[in-house]
Design a protein around this nucleic acid. Sequence first.
RNA 1: GGCCCUAUCGUCUAACGGUUAGGACGUGGGCUUUUCAAGCCUAAAAUCCGGGUUCGAUUCCCGGUAGGGUCACCA
Length: 447
Amino acid sequence: MKNNIVTRFPPSPTGLLHIGNVRTGLYNYFFALQNEGKFIFRIEDTDKERSKKEYEEDIFKSMEWLGLKYDGVTRQSERAGIHKKYLEKLLAEGKAYISKEEPKEEGQRTEVIRFKNPNTNITFTDLIRGEVSIDTTDLKDFVIAKSLDEPLYHLAVVVDDFEMGITHVIRGEDHISNTPRQILLLEAIGGSRPVYAHLPLIFAEDRSKLSKRKHGERVSLKHYIEQGYLPEAIINYMSLLGWNPGTDQEIFTFEELIKAFDISKVQKGGAIFNEEKLKWFNKEHMKRLPAEVLEQKMKEIITSVYKVSDNDIKHFTPVILERISTFGEARALIQQGEFDYLFKSPDYSIELLYWKGQKDHEALIRRLNEVIKILGRIDEKDYKQAIIKDALWEYATSEGRGEVLWPTRVALSGKEKSPDPFVLAELLGKEESLKRLHSALEKVSHA
RNA sequence: GGCCCUAUCGUCUAACGGUUAGGACGUGGGCUUUUCAAGCCUAAAAUCCGGGUUCGAUUCCCGGUAGGGUCACCA
């Protein structure tokens, strides 16, 4: 181990894992790994009322989904005995005292443990912000525990960080004003100071802190997992929100990030979370996935709606992938029938067959007939888009490309928007495409 | 409001005190042999304001302004 660096990731199971927390976890992870240090996972569940099993499970699942491996996991609630010892010591030394209280809310104690604030000025060096100096006088004698067996956040964090040998506390800027009081406590228990690094916050479009109350489900990692985002994309995008390598490289693998991450290059100002850019990252990472993985994923989505062979899935996958940026979008579009034409005969109105509203009935029939004739002459085994295009091109050019190609494409897809007719014809095969052309011809003839 | 933090295109950001202030997302236009998508090319788009320091400030200092965070028997 290089510098015996130990970082930690301490989420609280009082809600689904916050997307901003993901970035904090990632930075701690990168920093530990690049220094051959340790990364400790600690669940901060001292608040029994608000901590929920389901949220704890969500945090564990998230860690796994992201691929963050930790060197140890602890529940803070299991360490109450240790916290108690420190509390007793603080009390015995007169650094804390039991205070009589007037309960302001239901459930509040009539006695709590308060820290005896020495009212000093605390200055600490932040890796990102430099020297930060705060007068602790207005902190008063803050409450550190409801009772000997019920420690509160500040006490628990300070004791645990100290006992676990945490060397670097990398956390959100919302903790910057908590730091002086934690330093005060740390000094009281005789611990040595870790290095602090306070990360800029992540904002919503309105520039306020991303919060569940204001911004709903979009703040939780779970939401993005459900939307079908790739972990690679989330990791890549979040890492670059508030940090950059100083080069133009934007697409990184996990391994590359561990190497490239540089805490001294972390931004000071907050950043707005932009889902458009996240989508771009996702698309870029999708493009880099092996074909088998892509096909397997598309198979799951497609077969939930249509019955198709593996071979068809293999052919359809690129066509669908070109038009979406997440698997969630693929699922939604397929369920909406956007790609119906790949799986079954299209249903459309005759009007759609006319190119730019030119309602020349006779010409349309003539052209469809000609296209059928031309395609019919192509050998089954030569039925490939390039050959189909070559065969059709001369006629299409002489007749007017739109006039020929548009109705051909509509006959095959039944959609206003779809891949071009040559791609479609190959995908559908000779038999099916001719069948669709004939059915279009029939439609027009009977009109 | 007190305390603390921050400030480059709409957004994420780059720029030893000397650059035509660069890149990316998004947006507009064009090309790619009909539409959509993808791809390629291209355009518009920024140093919050005011003082200093300096031959020269995006960059250093001060003030203002704006934004944010935090002020629990939550974490």
